[in-house]
């Protein structure tokens, strides 16, 4: 059972209390965007084997959306942070760096942009 701490109400919630919202920090495309941009926004996902930044909703609790840094191989959670951010805060990065080095982070080139 995956357990995440909701950054708003502070409750450690089981996954049954939560709804997954998929990849986080997607750039929303507008009317001037190309078909390729829309395809990327709507369908193409990083789907990393390693660290993923994703959105979750505390659906059966406070109802808020929030972000999670998690490893898709070990299910290790590096921390949760509020939804109103464009990239993970430094404290999340510190946790990731303290537990993973270099290649092990599983960050690909697209991911790295988000982290920088």
């Amino acid at each position: 059972m995956l357990k995440l701490v909701c950054p708003y109400c502070g409750i450690e919630a089981d996954e049954t209390e939560l709804v997954s919202g998929g990849e986080a920090h997607l750039k929303r495309e507008g009317p001037d965007s190309t078909d390729d941009d829309f395809e990327g926004y709507l369908f193409l996902r990083e789907n990393p084997k390693g660290i993923i930044l994703e959105r979750w909703r505390h659906a059966m609790g406070c109802g808020k959306w929030f972000h999670v840094a998690r490893c898709t191989v070990t299910q290790e959670v590096f921390g949760t942070y509020p939804a109103q951010t464009l990239k993970p805060p430094p404290r999340i990065m510190e946790v990731i760096k303290s537990r993973r080095t270099g290649q092990e982070t599983g960050l690909n080139s697209d991911n790295a942009e988000k982290f920088s």
């Binding site: 995956l2 996954e15 993923i52 299910q75």
Partner: peptide
């Protein structure tokens, strides 16, 4: 499962 996963183990729920 509802979330991305590569671990060949799913949620007990």
């Amino acid at each position: 499962d509802q979330f991305n996963n590569y671990s060949q183990r799913g949620s007990f729920i």
